[in-house]
Design a protein around this nucleic acid. Structure first.
Lengths: 168, 168
DNA sequence: TAACTTTTTCAATCAATTTTGAAATTTCAG
DNA sequence: CTGAAATTTCAAAATTGATTGAAAAAGTTA
């Protein structure tokens, strides 16, 4: 397979993959393009290579910078801004987990806490099933939260090393 | 908080939460409703409680059954079909991981395998960055795959127990 | 400061996904 | 069988989310 074709495939799949994981298609494609580019790119490079508009590139680049997946790079003597992606996939995973935990898991756990205090007769099976379900999810969520926290804070070698042993 | 209000909030949030996790909003809401219902419900019950059309309920219920998150229940002496959700949240998590691993991770790993064999000069920095990136993601994906496999196969007590110890 | 380049914004448009609802099909009791 | 009840299908409509592009703002140089 030729590099050009391989690149196109990689970018397309990373985009599709990302869109299942809470990252929008274009944002993931830009990230993919930057991950396989040895040098930083400008907005115009990205527009051209992905065939998307300037506004689109700009918004999604900003979002990627928010997630800390992409950095602005200053190239001395150049007027334009350049961008480069975090290429260490473990770091990428940690950044994504960190961001999604903050945006989704934490608010959900907070809500579940409130919902546990529903008023009503404990003997009513509707109340019972509701609180049982909410409590179950809360406990599960707390476990997940703890694990993810460790993952986010870990460095690869330690994490992989320990886990490899753990899972035999 | 009243039960009615709490239910509405739970269903709405579970729907929003699910939509970030590859499960469509309505599908997640139906699942939420069934999780907090002590008894199985009919399509009409679901239509009424969530204010959605018959066709919508039907399609999403079928999808939930595909995922094994919901079962058809036969109520003796009743013509209508009843549905009930898996309520053990650990089992729910395992079913979701299993399905998404099959649908997303496995195909991605297969693609990455192909992309590793891109032809071209290893000295070309474009080729080098491409293969380095693809290889990195492949190795990471393989690790993730192994872990998830263990998770999918595990039973809760063992998994939680071991992990609790592991993460102190 | 003025002239020019680059970045950002956002209303309008476009695309993709979801939802509806009525018709077709299936199921089943009598 | 028959006919009413229940389920399924799917084209069209509605909704939601993504993208464009031109205008405004910000930044740079001389």
């Amino acid at each position: 397979m030729k590099l050009t074709e391989a690149k196109a495939q990689f970018i397309a799949s990373w985009g599709a993959f990302g869109s299942h994981w809470g990252i929008n298609r274009t944002m993931a494609q830009i990230h993919a393009l930057l991950m396989i580019s040895p040098d930083p790119l400008t907005q115009d490079d990205i527009m051209e290579q992905l065939n998307i508009s300037r506004g689109n590139v700009n918004m999604n680049i900003r979002e990627l910078i928010d997630w800390a997946l992409v950095d602005r790079v200053i190239v001395p003597g150049e007027r334009k801004e350049y961008f480069s992606a975090e290429k260490d996939i473990w770091k990428v995973a940690r950044l994504i987990v960190k961001e999604r935990k903050k945006r989704e898991l934490d608010p959900m756990l907070k809500l579940l806490d409130q919902l546990r205090e529903v008023e009503g007769d404990k003997k009513d099976k509707n109340v019972k099933q509701f609180t049982d379900t909410v409590n179950g999810i809360k406990r599960f969520g707390e476990q997940a939260d703890k694990m993810l926290e460790v993952l986010v804070k870990s460095d690869e070698s330690w994490f992989i090393g320990s886990l490899m042993k753990f899972f035999k």
